[in-house]
């Protein structure tokens, strides 16, 4: 245990005691060192996510939102600060926090069913029959039960992300991290997936952190939308989205909320950071 961690162990910040916080990010900072320059990517970011909450992170490209998600996942170590999941310090990646990546991350050497089974096989508490049952169920949930034996390259982009979603959900993570998962998809497919995500969220009550640069997407899915500034990334504004679910991205009120976020973002990109 290093000095910083020991120091943290001693004090108990008041918001840690809140049992409803599923995920706590505490003053996380990150620098990237390249031979030519040191980039300050994240500047003491603090976030709390309640159990069953959907939080969307939006910000200009290069603001470090994907880096923040990597740190929450445990794939990247923060240079200072820490991440707590269920009160436990995050020290590395683990299946309590599964990620749906933007790039296709399915394994081409396995078929669709095999991909979903990959994560399940790392769940020692399940028997093989239970694993198969769970894999069938989640592929059904994303509407791909007919495609279990299909190879990954035969799927469309939207189907691949559905499989990735099923793969992540099947292992029953505490938190689902989504890193611009629909960024590379066409608009029609994306709208379908918004419905899927909302339905799955309603049925499973998962805690979700969703990174995107699409305002409407953020407002459609999030209970809260956190706006990040350009590098060094900071949370500069939080928006509550008190709209009933399921939401449609064509809803007039929703568009209004999206416009508010977009206006605030324009302020940050223009250089002036509204405090």
């Amino acid at each position: 245990m290093n000095m910083a961690e020991a120091q943290w162990q001693g004090v108990t910040p008041e918001h840690v005691s809140g049992a409803s916080s599923k995920l706590i990010v505490e003053s996380v900072s990150k620098w990237f060192r390249t031979p030519r320059a040191t980039v300050h990517a994240l500047d003491s970011i603090s976030i709390q996510v309640a159990a069953g909450e959907v939080v969307c992170l939006v910000g200009p490209s290069g603001c470090g939102k994907s880096t923040l998600l990597d740190i929450i996942a445990g794939l990247t170590k923060p240079d200072s600060g820490r991440v707590l999941a269920d009160g436990q310090l995050v020290t590395g990646p683990g299946r309590q926090r599964l990620v749906v990546f933007q790039e296709p991350s399915l394994f081409p050497w396995l078929d669709v069913f095999g991909n979903v089974m990959f994560g399940l096989k790392l769940c020692p508490e399940l028997t093989n029959d239970e694993r198969r049952e769970v894999a069938h169920r989640f592929l059904g949930l994303v509407g791909l039960d007919k495609f279990e034996r299909v190879h990954v390259h035969e799927l469309s982009g939207g189907m691949k992300q559905r499989v990735a979603l099923a793969r992540a959900l099947a292992a029953d993570p505490q938190v689902l991290l989504m890193d611009e998962p629909f960024g590379a998809l066409d608009a029609m497919t994306r709208e379908h997936l918004y419905d899927d995500v909302q339905r799955i969220w309603r049925d499973s009550g998962k805690t979700i952190v969703f990174v995107t640069h699409n305002m409407r997407e953020a407002v459609c899915l999030g209970d809260r939308v956190l706006l990040m500034s350009r590098a060094p990334g900071k949370i500069i504004q939080a928006f509550d989205i008190p709209l009933p679910r399921p939401r449609s991205i064509y809803d007039v009120e929703l568009v209004g909320h999206a416009a508010r976020v977009a206006d605030a973002l324009r302020g940050t990109v223009g250089g002036g950071v509204p405090e």
Binding site: R95, L98, V99, F101, S105, F118
Partner: peptide, 13 residues
């Protein structure tokens, strides 16, 4: 692609 290792590590591999 490094994404394969990243995805696998989050799943506990």
């Amino acid at each position: 692609p490094p994404i394969y290792a990243r995805a696998a590590r989050t799943m506990g591999s």
